[in-house]
Amino acid sequence: MTDKKNIRQAAALKYDAAKRQAPVLTASGQGLTAEAIIKRATDNGVPIQQDPALVGLLSELEVNEMIPADLYDAVAEVFAFIYQADKQAGK
């Protein structure tokens, strides 16, 4: 029996204010798919924030779906984290 609590999950978001009013889920998965998402982010210097509760909620969305309004605050925190990480890295 597999313990779902120990299976790694990941989600990727993209936000382009010129194209959409809210961020879009660009990738989501667990296990090997999650590892591939995390590796791609790491390889491309994308900051990673760990928030299992948010990833669980995002995993209920379809890829290319805009996030719902009730997740705006949580996702805004993620983008603030990324902004600060980029600022510290001099990007």
Rank of each mutant, 00 (worst) to 15 (best):
P68N: 06
S28A: 14
A76T: 13
F81Q: 07
L71R: 06
E60M: 11
E65Y: 04
K5N: 15
T42K: 14
T26A: 04
T26L: 06
I38C: 06
F81N: 08
G90P: 04
T33M: 15
Y72S: 07
K14Q: 14
K14L: 10
P52H: 02
L13A: 06
A80K: 08
E60Q: 13
A22S: 15
L54T: 05
S59E: 09
K14P: 00
D51L: 03
K5W: 00
I67D: 00
A18R: 13
D70Q: 13
K19M: 10
A53E: 14
A12Y: 05
T2P: 11
Y83C: 00
P52F: 05
K5I: 06
P68M: 02
A11N: 01
K87W: 05
L25E: 04
I67K: 01
N44F: 03
K5H: 09
S28W: 00
G45P: 05
V24Q: 12
R8L: 15
A41R: 05
I67H: 00
L25Y: 05
A85T: 11
V75H: 09
A34G: 05
A22N: 06
N44T: 07
Q88W: 02
Q21T: 06
F79I: 05
G29W: 11
A69I: 08
K87Q: 12
A89T: 01
Y15A: 02
A17C: 01
A89M: 07
N64S: 11
D86M: 12
D86K: 13
A18D: 14
L32T: 10
Q30H: 08
D43T: 10
D16V: 13
E60D: 10
L13C: 09
N44E: 13
V63W: 04
E65D: 12
L57S: 00
K4T: 11
E77P: 01
A18G: 13
K5A: 13
A11F: 01
V24M: 10
A74T: 07
L57A: 01
D73V: 11
Y72K: 10
K87E: 13
S59Q: 13
K39Q: 15
I37C: 11
A10E: 12
V55L: 04
R20C: 02
G29V: 05
G45W: 02
K39L: 11
L61W: 02
A17Q: 12
N44C: 08
D16H: 06
P23A: 08
K91S: 05
A53C: 00
I82F: 07
A17I: 00
T33W: 00
K4L: 12
P23L: 05
I7Y: 03
T42D: 15
D16A: 11
K19L: 14
A17N: 03
K4W: 03
I48C: 02
D43I: 04
